[in-house]
Design a protein around this nucleic acid. Structure first.
Lengths: 347, 347
DNA sequence: CTGAAAGCGCTTACAG
DNA sequence: CTGAAAGCGCTTACAG
């Protein structure tokens, strides 16, 4: 092979050590190398040969080629997680849970969508070409499953609204929203405002509708104009609140329920700047219970979502699917709890 | 092949559509299918055949198998980014930059390290088995390169302290630290404290030493005991500050320089709770200029680091490397700027 | 313009 | 316990 072409990408400086090279050095076949390299040697390879192969592997720095291996076995040892929103601090805890459940057998790879985009079937199809052992999809589009056929082992996270036949681990955000409503009603609030997120995530819809339903049942009113929505950004939320507050106040609003803690931080911030007393004049609640909510001042009443557990459970389910087991329960729903703090409750 | 074994993982329900199936349906060879499927048809495949193949691809829902393709070509169309700290909001902007530069030719996959761990050569070696077209490594361990031999196209991000021969895009954090020192000295501060991060990231070391050197030059003093360090967590930083402040105050400290904005948020929070006037009694500076710093109250003086640009430049360099081009400059350093705000400057 | 064929690196029945 | 060989799905010279 003459290499006389001008543009020669990727100079072959990086010589790949193959199983064949190891086999030659050890004086065995590549089959034996494969067995040893994959830890399947016991009872199938003589101690002498195993030692020889190990020596050769070490000397040559051999690492099993994932591509060749994946092609031969039909799947890779990769688990791919598709997620929309890595900038959400909550997400880091989910990842930690996934990693802890996955252990070292599978390599976790993250694929993030563009800002504001939910994971689509299209994204995922491309990823399927990498033959992941399994797929974890966080907060997918509603049309996700219709479009994606025969996807192999797959577990959805935070995907309310999907049929019971698809393996999913969900957070009981509706319950959390009801807890918020109950808490505010018990504290005597009659008129409340709602600050929503603008991404079309289903979880936001659930939070909102569950809260509104419960509020209505409990005799709380959302006055006209007392619903707003912004992106998940402290500053933007603060501005929106600054603009809305005079009207809300005039309408008798005494509490604002936020779709995320981040929205609530914006309100807290603006309230401080504008001298609005919290919770005296206005109670504020969040959702997600981010770490900062425990320590902000005032600390933020928020719905705690078990992120680490969400990730762990999802990965555990996926592992079962990969092993060809039946799932006892296709759908797992994790409890959310209300953390009552200073933003709604005068100590 | 009899499939009489009991445990049969991954039921073959998911029938893979192969190029051979497409070829058969279209009445052509797999070579032709490959050309069409990869957009290399023009001038090499007749219009008739191309149309037939396209029809078959659509009808069958064929997607090129990434594994087979990668094995045949030697590399995948994947770019893998290894990063330590996705919970840092700054990271999301870096990713956005990487994605925008990468476009659709390469699929970006993220591999995150365990909490508190920097990317190691070991992590990366496993990833190499996936034959990425290129590798982006954010904030690697110092020993990273010694341990990793012949890694193929590789660009480091935020990796100060590596030799000039390794392609890297860095942030000029030292310059930023000097700006902070200059700003505080100009405002008349004589005694300052430093609140550092505890992860051993080189960037923290750089921030600290650059600041300390500049401070000394400018005649500012760091009193005994006026250096502390905590994890990157608002609450923890707040507690540490609460404990340290009496001593610092007694020593005459009038400004605290923080290694990250998150640390500074902790101080802001504790100061509010403790009634310490900022910036009247104490000036506070951060680092990273997170979005919230513009809108906190008081807003936070901070060193702005161009995260999106960092990601973009790194990806652009990597693309050149992948294409076999020489890099004009192995090392790119991006400017940091000081954003002076309310936490150091009375309006 | 086209297809037969080799080859990428590995794994896994299979025969010994 | 061991190795020769087939095969995973694709791409790419090569010959026509």
């Amino acid at each position: 092979m003459h290499s006389t072409q001008k543009p020669r990408p990727t100079p072959p400086s990086r010589r790949r050590v193959t199983a064949a090279m190891v086999a030659e050095r050890a004086g065995v076949s590549t089959a034996t190398v494969s067995l040893v390299a994959n830890g399947k040697a016991s009872g199938r390879v003589s101690a002498t040969n195993e030692a020889k192969v190990r020596e050769a592997i070490r000397a040559l720095g051999y690492v099993v080629d994932g591509i060749g291996s994946s092609l031969a076995r039909g799947v890779s040892n990769t688990v791919i997680m598709v997620a929309p929103d890595i900038s959400n601090p909550f997400f880091a805890t989910v990842i930690a849970g996934v990693r802890s459940a996955l252990g070292s057998k599978y390599q976790l790879l993250l694929s993030v969508t563009d800002a504001g985009q939910l994971p689509s079937a299209d994204d995922t199809r491309r990823l399927l070409g990498l033959r992941p052992a399994g797929l974890l999809v966080d907060a997918p589009e509603l049309s996700f499953l219709e479009e994606l056929s025969a996807p192999g082992p797959l577990v959805l996270l935070d995907a309310p609204g999907f049929g019971p036949e698809v393996p999913a681990v969900n957070l009981d955000v509706a319950h959390g929203a009801r807890l918020v409503a109950g808490h505010l009603a018990a504290a005597g609030h009659k008129k409340v405002a709602y600050l929503d997120g603008t991404t079309g995530t289903t979880t936001f819809e659930l939070r909102r509708t569950a809260f509104l339903d419960a509020a209505a049942e409990l005799g709380m009113e959302i006055p006209d104009g007392a619903m707003a929505s912004t992106t998940i950004n402290v500053g933007v939320a603060a501005d929106a609140f600054a603009e809305a507050w005079p009207g809300w106040k005039a309408a008798g609003v005494t509490a604002v329920v936020c779709a995320t803690d981040t929205h609530a931080y914006g309100i807290l911030q603006e309230a401080r700047a504008a001298g609005i007393s919290i919770p005296g004049e206005l109670a504020v609640t969040g959702f997600d219970d981010l770490p900062y909510s425990r320590t902000s001042s005032p600390s933020l009443t928020s719905v705690n979502l078990p992120g680490e557990l969400l990730g762990r459970r999802a990965a555990e389910q996926l592992l079962r699917l990969i092993d060809g087991e039946e799932l006892e329960t296709q759908q797992v729903t994790l409890e959310s709890t209300l953390m009552v703090r200073g933003s709604t409750f005068e100590a």
